[in-house]
């Protein structure tokens, strides 16, 4: 033990050295985060703010998804259920109960989490493809229920959701105020996401992704950790869906369909599964494709298909993942 003490002083062993961190970000990540802040600040001068806000809600959604796929090792094909049901409940409570946006957002988030607990409870004992298929089946059931129950407004969806005043004093009716509110929330979510991944809890999740059998043999209740991760992910997805409702004033069947479920996979694949900033970069790219190629109608899907194959075949780690390898730093 004496040799250890002297050794740590000569800093040959990086044992007691605390890494330099701000907001829980390492230096490389902080650079990335500040770049993102700059984009958020300059963005509305160059691009349509509503488009940017859509990107931000998808960043939150994609972070939620990456927590599960990239850091717990669980592949879900049913995340639209949480996103869409969050969107619906947020809209429904705002319209029918007259809830202020803060409470409507809370309702949508809780919806995602509760639904996540149910999905998780059913699916968590299976792994790999079986897990993915169970989540897919359950989300299709949710879609069908939404199609047939009056509360969603069927094909019309829930329209005219009032933006209201956040916490009673932030008037979201103004596009500028709304933009900055959503932007700050998104930045906070990215900070929170990084914190969760690099917490003792996140350490357990990453170990489970690495080697679930070994984690269990060391005494960790793997199923329980997976379930908690699933619930957090679903709650955050519900929150993203709720924010989307506030921004656009509508919740529709599209939100709960297969579309967001596949988009979120594509976003993470392009950005980088298992990276902190993959969801950010991926959301910008995928939603830009949709936005700027919108005039070409269905050809978007062809283009997205090509992008998907390109990344699967050549850029397996996604953009941020490849950059990570190049810089030899975790991003």
């Amino acid at each position: 033990m004496t040799t250890l003490d002297s050794a740590s002083e000569t800093k040959d062993l990086h044992v007691t050295k605390e890494p330099y961190q701000i907001l829980g970000f390492t230096r490389a990540r902080l650079v990335f985060f500040l770049l993102f802040v700059a984009v958020v600040a300059i963005g509305p001068m160059v691009l349509y703010p509503i488009f940017l806000m859509k990107v931000y809600t998808f960043i939150i959604f994609a972070c939620a998804y990456n927590l599960l796929l990239g850091f717990t090792g669980l592949m879900s094909f049913g995340h639209a259920a949480f996103f869409g049901m969050g969107a619906y409940l947020c809209g429904w409570t705002a319209v029918n109960l007259g809830l202020p946006p803060s409470l409507a957002l809370l309702a949508g988030t809780a919806m995602g989490a509760v639904l996540g607990a149910i999905f998780g409870w059913v699916a968590i004992r299976r792994t790999g493809l079986y897990f993915a298929m169970i989540t897919l089946a359950l989300s299709q059931m949710v879609f069908f229920i939404c199609l047939r129950t009056p509360f969603t407004g069927g094909e019309d969806g829930i329209q005219g959701v009032p933006r209201g005043d956040l916490f009673g004093f932030i008037p979201l009716g103004s596009d500028t105020v709304l933009y900055w509110t959503i932007a700050v929330i998104t930045l906070l979510v990215v900070v929170l996401f990084n914190r969760i991944i690099h917490s003792p809890f996140g350490q357990v999740l990453r170990a489970i992704r690495n080697n679930p059998v070994r984690a269990q043999s060391l005494g960790y209740n793997v199923d329980r950790f997976k379930l908690i991760s699933f619930i957090i992910s679903a709650g955050l997805a519900g929150f993203a869906g709720s924010l989307k409702t506030i921004v656009f004033g509508i919740a529709t069947l599209t939100d709960v369909s297969l579309v967001p479920s596949t988009e979120v996979v594509l976003i993470n694949l392009v950005g980088g599964i298992g990276t902190i900033f993959g969801p950010v970069v991926g959301s910008f790219i995928i939603l830009s494709i949709e936005h700027f190629l919108a005039p070409y109608g269905p050809y978007i899907f062809v283009f997205q298909g090509v992008v998907f194959m390109f990344f699967v075949l050549i850029f397996r780690q996604g953009l941020v993942g490849e950059l990570q390898k190049l810089l030899k730093k975790h991003l």
């Binding site: 961190q21 914190r195 003792p200 809890f201 996140g202 170990a207 060391l218 005494g219």
Partner: peptide, 22 residues
């Protein structure tokens, strides 16, 4: 360290920095 971490108990503290494990 991951094995040692188990003795901390529940390990659900997602809000804390992993530097607490140092």
């Amino acid at each position: 360290r991951f094995a040692l971490q188990r003795k901390r108990g529940a390990n659900l503290d997602f809000w804390r920095s992993e530097n607490t494990l140092n």
